[in-house]
Nucleic acid binder design. Structure first.
Length: 959
RNA sequence: GCAGGGGUCGCCAAGCCUGGUCAACGGCGCUGGGCUUAGGACUCAGUCCUUUAGUAGGUACGAGGGUUCAAAUCCCUUCCCCUGCACCA
């Protein structure tokens, strides 16, 4: 009978929902297990990466249920931040890319084209996006067969959730973990608003980092010519200033200073926490030929023209260090040769000749000026060469790590560049000759609205300060007591913890919760998603009792989560009746702490770390989380999934193509947590076939006969039962240490192989044991392929849900190692026969098997018992009468055994065992090998082959 | 740069933590047999080299050293590749 997987899956998903199988309520005398997977960001359909994480989480949840735990496995929807807004803006503006993308998304689950169009149009309203995708996420996870308690779902934009986060941030404020400060952000000049990845054109492809330039103030006229640089330590080697003669410059009042900078720079500085008043405006060429002073030793340097200077980059003024900057070097060389330009600006020859290149850094491996050498090395011919950038990068790196400042640098002589940088800044700062200028690391960033993106410094940014008070210490305390699996990721956490400092915690716009004490700010997406697992424990009660969110005040949460306040008072203040309050508190206390959080490693550096930090900030120690398991992402045919690559596989599409159980099995068996799963079509199809094989094997031997028929306990049967039990024990210990892959491999492949090997060698009576074996097997298979298991369980057992079955008890089951050894022995014999047959390639009519003589058993045991006494071995063995009789043969056999003495194992079978088991298996062997088999004791045989017989390795003769 | 991960027999990929049972799981590909009218599918066998009626030897786990009776596995050096680095969730 072949099975219609899709029909079966739908059937059981409906049944689970109808019978509320996964709705978890506190049962106070039952042990509980609370497992969560981070809620996914709900701005598109889920992909197979989500599928992996949830499949694993679900497998754990299902296993724990079998083990008798009351399991809570909830999920919700994350919508905080700007991405959803960016989408609705895109739809409003008829953005083609966004519209196409979302039409595709909606089409995944909606067939009618007009409906698709209508739905996409509705996305002009952000909440429609959220609601739509929340619904498709639920569909997707239902179709995957995840055992989620949906009563507890919510979105992070719900008012109830807002109330919860409001409480959380009040707690953080009380702890003094929140503070205000300055912070540079990307900002759109057109929108006059902060922008993030989603708001920026190709934001997912370009580097959005902010780069801090150092501005050095060169005294000039009544103020300063302000040049910007990434390498302030080179100020000792400055030879001249570069100005773009074509660009527009300004004399401008910056705070209390007069600066000469490009006009574009002045307009940007307005956003960088400075007051800006333009006094004069002029072309760059008017500065050419003037002189200014160096800020450190008051030298005169000249201002030269250079077209490579970009007035849109930083201050538009560049100071020239030709010894160490390839751009400067080549420009200076060009200028020295360019008599025409010199004349044009009226330079005197002596002015030009006076410009001497100053080398300030000694660098191993370079004999000449480093910049000059790099130019030669890269074969750069002129100022416009693309290779100049490479040369600059190389010099920058080499000098930063290997360069030593020389005697031109006064007090800093002998310092490494890396160390000198800070000190030079400090020195310039003492005489107020330094400032900062921020710019995006990518030169021209455009907002989706078309506006230019610059760096804006906010002076009232809210931060979480992870270094405040005992916060970090507490977080480490929590981490040290947690199980992190795979364990190699623990150091990753430790590094992140050490590195965490201040984190901006609110933004100017986006969906989410307002900062309670400063409502201009929205709490940012990662900060509002740190302790929400606690919210799962009570949201069902809030919904069930229709508690309006304005009643969810601080007193309420204090009472429920922290057991603060008298219930009567709280009830008065919240207007919620006491019974409900008590129920909520009890439920929280029942489920918390969170036992297990499972997710992808990418979340370590932010979400998971914040998760730990915030738990320690808000909750008492006995409510801190206990376990985190982590996995690598999913790749598709060897490459990373990405929107831009167009290779993102939506979960729904994939499940509908292959069925949920195939997906689950593939995901669980193909990689361990510490490696990425590669989704390969060919392999997935194999998985499909494997499931077919398993189900047909099961169907062949599974039946309704549960009357404990007496099955003859042959060695074969005993060995099967023992091997099977051993596998179940192994599988259990693997999943207990969170190794799902090993678990699945054992349950799926090992046991399948075990049963099919048994099938080959067993007679019909013996095969009756399979019904009982399979019944147990189905239960252990169910965390992996739950739908098929439910179906089979129903057909053959009809005892309710396999999801609620009981994990097999292995404690009192004996593993009969002797039977296993005996069957192993048979396997070895068969393998050897096959090996020999391969070589001889003759028609076999008769096979003689010669069992080892008794004395070899004796000798082997003696050798094993004395394996640590290699030298005394022969005399010891020779004390034995039987051994001595054999003379030389014994010595030879001993020397054979000692060759591998380190790996010599105890041999458990006796000669009698060997003879008996082969006789027992004789018929099966004859059938399998299609010939007569004769078993002889080699003591009584004169055959050559009999002489080589050893315990465990009988002599074999093929005739 | 800082931090993390990795280089395994054509390809993908286990093993490495806890050294021996590792010529190294598994899959793909390839070769041959069976089954088929054929193909596909399925199935059996082979797939580092040599040797052989089975259990043997050699060379191998990026490269080079070291520790050990014994190293893919531990240590050191070196070459190469990948990922993250904060407002993006």
């Amino acid at each position: 009978m072949s099975m219609d997987f899709k029909k079966i899956e739908k059937k059981w998903q409906d049944k689970w929902a109808k019978e509320k199988v996964f709705e978890a309520n506190p049962i106070f005398n039952q042990k509980k297990y609370f497992i969560t997977v981070p809620y996914p960001y709900t701005n598109g359909p889920q992909h197979i990466g989500h599928g992996r994480t949830f499949t694993c989480g679900d497998a754990f949840a299902r296993y724990k249920r079998l083990k008798g735990y009351n399991v809570l496995f909830p999920m919700a929807f994350h919508i905080t931040g700007t991405p959803v807004l960016a989408i609705s803006r895109g739809i409003q503006n008829n953005d083609k890319i966004i519209k196409t993308r979302f039409t595709e998304y909606v089409a995944l689950d909606t067939k009618n084209k007009d409906d698709v169009k209508k739905i996409v149009e509705s996305f002009k309203e952000p909440w429609n996006i959220v609601n739509y995708f929340a619904k498709t996420f639920k569909t997707g996870f239902d179709e995957l067969g995840t055992s989620i308690d949906w009563r507890r779902s919510f979105t992070t934009g719900d008012t109830e959730y807002n109330a919860f986060v409001t409480w959380q941030f009040n707690k953080l404020k009380d702890k003094n973990y929140l503070e205000k400060g300055k912070y540079p952000i990307l900002f759109c000049l057109n929108d006059q608003n902060a922008v993030g990845e989603d708001d920026i054109l190709s934001g997912d492809e370009i580097d959005l980092a902010i780069q801090e330039y150092t501005c050095i103030k060169y005294p000039y006229k009544d103020g300063y010519l302000v040049a910007s640089t990434l390498r302030p330590e080179t100020v000792y080697g400055v030879t001249n200033i570069w100005i773009n003669p074509q660009a527009t410059y300004v004399k401008v009042k910056i705070n209390d200073d007069i600066w000469y900078i490009s006009k574009k720079a002045a307009s940007k500085l307005e956003y960088q926490d400075k007051t800006v008043k333009i006094l004069e405006e002029f072309k760059g060429k008017e500065l050419i030929g003037d002189k200014c002073k160096t800020p450190i030793n008051n030298r005169d340097i000249i201002i030269l023209p250079a077209t490579f200077v970009d007035d849109d980059n930083a201050t538009g003024v560049v100071y020239s260090v030709p010894a160490h900057a390839p751009f400067d070097y080549i420009a200076l060389m060009d200028f020295k040769k360019d008599v025409k330009t010199q004349k044009q600006y009226g330079f005197k020859k002596e002015d030009i000749d006076n410009i001497k290149i100053i080398q300030i850094i000694n660098l191993e491996g370079y004999t000449d000026f480093p910049a000059k050498e790099a130019i030669e090395q890269f074969e750069i011919k002129n100022q416009n060469s693309d290779k100049l950038k490479l040369a600059t990068e190389k010099i920058y790196k080499d000098e930063f790590y290997k360069g030593i400042l020389n005697d031109k640098c006064e007090d800093f002589k002998g310092l490494k560049v890396a160390d000198a940088k800070e000190k030079v800044i400090e020195k310039l700062n003492k005489t107020n000759k330094i400032d900062k200028f921020y710019r995006p690391i990518t030169p021209t960033i455009k907002c989706r609205c078309g506006g230019d993106v610059i760096v804006h410094i906010l002076d009232d940014q809210w931060f979480l300060n992870f270094n405040q008070g005992t916060w970090k210490k507490d977080a480490f305390d929590c981490l040290n007591n947690m199980n992190i699996t795979p364990s190699k990721y623990r150091t990753f956490f430790e590094n992140v913890f050490n590195w965490l400092d201040k984190r901006p915690t609110a933004r100017k716009r986006g969906l989410g919760t307002k900062l309670p004490f400063d409502t201009n700010w929205i709490i940012e997406a990662l900060s509002d998603s740190t302790i929400y697992m606690a919210f799962y424990t009570i949201i069902n009660k809030i919904k069930e009792n229709k508690i309006p969110s304005d009643k969810l005040n601080i007193e309420l949460f204090d009472y429920v989560f922290l057991n603060k306040g008298a219930i009567k008072e709280v009830s008065k203040k919240t207007g919620i009746n006491e019974t409900i309050l008590k129920e909520m508190q009890d439920e929280f206390n029942y489920w918390y702490p969170l036992d297990h959080r499972h997710t992808a490693i990418m979340h370590i550096s932010n979400h998971l770390s914040f998760f730990i930090f915030h738990h320690t900030a808000i909750f008492p120690k006995n409510k801190w989380p206990k376990t985190i398991t982590l996995l690598e992402p999913v790749t598709v045919e060897g490459s990373k999934m990405g929107k831009s690559k167009g290779n993102v596989l939506p979960l729904i599409k994939t499940i509908r193509k292959y069925s949920a159980d195939v997906f689950r099995l593939y995901i669980l068996t193909s990689a361990g947590f510490a490696s990425s799963v590669d989704w390969r079509e060919i392999e997935v199809e194999k998985t499909q076939k494997h499931i077919d094989k398993i189900t047909s094997l099961i169907q062949k031997y599974y039946n309704n006969n549960n009357n404990n028929v007496k099955i003859k306990q042959t060695t074969n049967v005993k060995a099967l039962v023992s091997r099977f039990t051993q596998k179940i024990i192994d599988a259990e210990s693997n999943i207990e240490s969170f190794d799902l892959q090993k678990y699945a491999q054992i349950i799926i492949f090992d046991i399948y192989n075990l049963i099919s090997a048994f099938e080959k060698r067993a007679n019909d009576d013996e095969k009756q044991i399979l019904n009982e074996i399979i019944n147990t097997w189905i239960i252990t298979l169910s965390p992996i392929i739950p739908h098929i298991c439910e179906e089979l369980f129903e057909i053959y057992q009809n005892k309710g849900f396999v999801a609620k079955a009981e994990w097999p008890k292995t404690k009192n089951k004996k593993i009969d190692t002797k039977s296993i050894d005996m069957m192993d022995f048979v396997d070895t014999v068969i393998e050897d026969i096959h090996n020999i047959k391969k070589q001889v390639r003759i028609e076999t009519k008769q096979i003689n098997i010669y069992i080892s003589p008794l004395w070899k058993f004796t000798v082997r045991d003696l050798v094993f018992d004395n394996k640590n006494n290699a030298k005394g071995l022969i005399p010891i063995v020779m004390k034995n009468v039987e051994a001595r009789k054999q003379g030389d043969l014994t010595v030879k056999y001993i020397s054979n055994l000692t060759k591998e003495i380190h790996s010599l194992q105890k041999y458990e079978l006796t000669q009698e065992n060997e003879i008996n088991i082969l006789n027992e298996a004789k018929k099966v062997l004859e059938a399998e090998l299609k010939c007569n088999i004769q078993i002889e004791n080699s003591d009584k045989s004169k055959s050559d082959k009999a002489k080589r017989a050893e315990p465990g390795k009988p002599g074999i003769e093929i005739l």
